[in-house]
Design a protein around this nucleic acid. Structure first.
Ligand code: FES
Ligand code: FES
Lengths: 135, 135
DNA sequence: AGAAACTTGACTATTTTAGTCGGGTATATA
DNA sequence: TATATACCCGACTAAAATAGTCAAGTTTCT
């Protein structure tokens, strides 16, 4: 069970931004250099972050991105949501009438995976971006 | 972030066995039919479960598998361990001197993933197989 | 003897991941 | 206004992981 790099890099990049406590925009190029993440990969990631209003973009020379919210107010769950990295340890399609084994009823372990998902989501709900840079 | 089918099936199959509360061995063929899991895939899974002493095998006709422990005493973490399904959401190699970005220091998010791993492992440590069949 | 059931290694199709490539568009500044 | 900087975005791809299947056993019960 592992996290994908997009989600990890997103958190890394945003933590990088937050730790600067900058006023103006921060360019992806700088984040790329500081964090060792491919610039073009960062662009993919920030496209989604922008669509979910986690960052705002400023185009053109001297442009870059700024955080839409104060790090104290940005839950990690919002970041994961933006990247479609849903926690879905479960086997069955969530809305389907059929269970994970193609039968109609929920399987014997269904509730377990539901609980696990909740447990993991709790973690992300209770972590703020600020928490990453203050200790 | 998803669980692989081997781990899910392992828990399903063991829960199936536990819920029978049988005295004698239970054949994979029966589990396969009841739970809708490929017999040959189950064989792969039970090989590992046996190697980790979670089940014992009885060969020959009327053979099958029996649980090595009472379901009340079998933590889910043991099952995941048996299938090498370690929780490793982290980016860097755990023992390496280098961080996830190839640099020497730990990255800004390293502690976060460590905490997440602990959080998830807690869940598995505190769940017993018995918990799946009593409610 | 024959059937049931475990044992094991090798193989493979599919899917997912982790990116790269290439061509844009917008804007600050000289 | 020229130019460099930096965001924008769809398409593509190599590599790895996943989710199995296949084949050829061995053991033991009846
Ligand atoms: S996990 Fe939902 S039916 Fe099996
Ligand atoms: S996750 Fe350990 S150094 Fe980045």
């Amino acid at each position: 069970m592992r996290l994908n790099t997009k989600s990890r890099y997103a958190v890394m990049a945003l933590a990088d931004m937050a730790s600067l406590r900058a006023i103006g925009p921060i360019s992806l190029r700088d984040i790329s250099l500081r964090q060792g993440i491919s610039l073009q990969y960062l662009e993919q990631i920030f496209l989604k972050l922008k669509q979910h209003n986690i960052v705002k973009s400023i185009r053109g020379s001297n442009g870059g991105y700024i955080l839409s919210k104060h790090p104290n107010n940005l839950k990690l769950s919002e970041i994961f949501l933006a990247l479609n990295e849903s926690v879905k340890t479960i086997g069955c399609e969530r809305d389907s009438k059929k269970g994970c084994n193609g039968r109609s009823a929920k399987c014997i372990t269904h509730n377990l995976w539901d609980e696990l998902d909740l447990h993991i989501n709790d973690f992300f709900e209770n972590k703020k971006l600020e928490d990453l840079i203050t200790n």
